[in-house]
């Protein structure tokens, strides 16, 4: 049995750190793990996706349509874009922050309205919160990735202590306290 987690967002939002933290958390539990990242062209403000898979033995590094147990999204439109990758009964955790893609900026397309409601109406289990605000409350907008991991804590099926230990391993000492605070604040939105 493998657990499939997708981390999606806009290039430059810091999803690589989130995937490192999850990779470390999974390793602490002695699972086999594969984490697949996107580098290069897509990092320049494009749509980016990271796959984290763990279990007794992981074969493919990628996650396909209908396979994700959890999708963590740094941005609302990206949550909607990757929704078809969610497994039936999976959970999608999304930041409600909106970043306009270039076709919206130039007026060639519109940012769809009410996406959280529409994803729920489609049958998906959605947890949505302003992770940027949670990170600000913890002390820095940069902690948004750890706030999201906190929000996803329940769905991830990894215990809080392991996740906190993974944060400890993955972030610099001087930012540890504010990141742990972001995790706890995020976790209060995780049910």
């Amino acid at each position: 049995m493998t657990k499939n987690i997708m981390i999606v967002g806009v290039g430059g939002q810091g999803s690589l750190l989130a995937s490192r933290i999850l990779g470390n958390a999974v390793l602490l539990q002695n699972y086999d793990v594969k984490v697949s990242e996107v580098h290069g062209m897509s990092q320049r403000g494009g749509s980016v996706v990271t796959y984290v898979k763990y279990g007794d033995k992981v074969a493919s590094p990628v996650i396909c349509k209908g396979e994700a147990d959890v999708i963590m999204s740094f941005e609302l439109l990206e949550a909607a874009r990757w929704l078809p990758y969610l497994k039936k009964d999976g959970v999608i955790i999304t930041n409600t922050q909106q970043i306009n893609p270039m076709p919206v900026v130039t007026g060639a397309a519109e940012y769809p309205a009410d996406l959280v409601e529409k994803m729920k109406a489609a049958g998906a289990k959605v947890i949505a919160a302003d992770a940027l605000e949670i990170a600000r409350e913890a002390g820095s907008e940069k902690a948004v990735n750890v706030a999201l991991i906190g929000m996803a804590a329940h769905a991830l099926g990894i215990d809080d202590e392991t996740l906190r230990e993974a944060v400890r391993i993955s972030v610099p000492e001087k930012f540890l306290e504010l990141n742990l605070k972001a995790f706890d604040l995020g976790a209060s939105h995780s049910a």
């Binding site: 929704l83 078809p84 489609a122």
Partner: peptide, 20 residues
Amino acid sequence: KKNDCYTLEDNIPVRPPVLC
């Protein structure tokens, strides 16, 4: 074999990479 999946009716605008 194909997996079942959730879909939205909305047209999701593409997000191509851009100059920073």
